[in-house]
């Protein structure tokens, strides 16, 4: 049975396994993934600013000082003061907290909820039409309009802003995950696992979820960036967090009327917002290049 007409040496090929992959050093990593290094570094700086705000030479961002209104940037007030005499530097630094919290929490919530919906939709086909039509319905409304409409139903607070933006971003993740699940279900390793008696919960947890994670992480960074922009827009038009809260959008809204004479009021929060969003997008692009199996991991 087993004799196969074959030259002897073919059967006796030595088993050569490649050497174990060695972990690259920090410098190598930075050179290979500049986007992750720069974006991640900037986000780390912003996070430190947000956490250490009280110890960075700031004063109470809400304390009024009518004697010192509209001072231009100077040694006493690095970013100047606004029309109520509040220190813009302090307000911008404290505003970092609002933007980062909204960005990070929305990215996390939208990913988790979207992933759950995508997994259910891809795996339990009876629920798929219903869930996906709901997702399509949400996607049909521009996310900024949807967030404004949802905020109109409630009162302004950071929590409500997070909920409103999350609802508008969930369908992105749900559709992405559902598509991947449909593809993964057909993969031979999934069928082999079913044939080997793996039950559905373990199948999803071990074989489906880990293989959807990389694109979801990339998507989450983009959602984080979009959430920060939408949050600033909501504040700017007065539909976001209450006006007394120092947030970048609020500061810009307050400075808008004086834009032509005192541009620094708008400039500093706008600069911080731009840099943060750029950093998050750089990180997202870097992660995509690193995690996408078609571009990176096979080399």
């Amino acid at each position: 049975m087993s004799e196969f007409a074959l030259p002897e040496e073919a059967a006796a090929l030595p088993e050569i396994l490649p050497p174990a992959v060695r972990r690259g050093r920090v410098a190598g990593f930075v050179l290979q993934h500049p986007g992750i290094a720069i974006g991640g570094g900037l986000i780390a700086v912003m996070t430190v600013l947000a956490l250490a705000a009280p110890w960075l030479g700031t004063v109470d961002p809400q304390s009024l000082d009518p004697a010192n209104m509209l001072i231009v940037p100077s040694a006493g007030h690095w970013f100047g003061t606004d029309m109520l005499g509040r220190d813009i530097y302090s307000r911008v630094i404290y505003g970092t907290r609002v933007s980062l919290v909204v960005g990070f929490v929305v990215a996390l919530l939208a990913s988790v909820i979207g992933m759950a919906i995508g997994l259910v939709s891809g795996f339990f086909r009876a629920l798929d039409p219903v869930l996906m039509r709901v997702m399509d319905g949400i996607l049909a409304i521009p996310s900024i309009l949807l967030a404004i409409a949802l905020m109109a139903l409630t009162q302004g607070s950071v929590g409500n802003v997070i909920v409103a933006i999350t609802i508008s971003q969930v369908p992105q993740v749900a559709r992405l995950v559902r598509g991947m699940v449909l593809g993964l279900r057909e993969q031979p390793f999934v069928e082999a696992a079913i044939a080997a008696g793996t039950r559905t919960p373990r199948l999803i947890w071990r074989h489906i979820v880990p293989n959807t994670l990389a694109p979801v992480i990339v998507q989450a960074t983009y959602i984080c960036a979009v959430a920060m922009i939408i949050e600033a827009i909501l504040d700017f038009i007065g539909a976001g967090v209450p006006p007394i809260v120092p947030s970048w959008g609020n500061i810009m809204a307050e400075g808008r009327a004086l834009w032509q004479v005192k541009p620094f009021i708008v400039f500093f929060p706008a600069f911080f917002l731009s840099v943060t969003v750029l950093a998050v997008n750089l990180l997202g692009d870097g992660l995509r290049d690193m995690l996408d199996p078609r571009l990176g991991s096979r080399k």
Binding site: P188, F189, A193, A196, R206, P210, N211
Partner: peptide, 18 residues
């Protein structure tokens, strides 16, 4: 299922890469 198993064609997609 324990009593019958399968070996698939594609040696790449038949093993979970993770």
């Amino acid at each position: 299922r324990r009593r019958m198993q399968v070996v698939f064609q594609d040696p790449y997609s038949s093993l979970n890469p993770r």
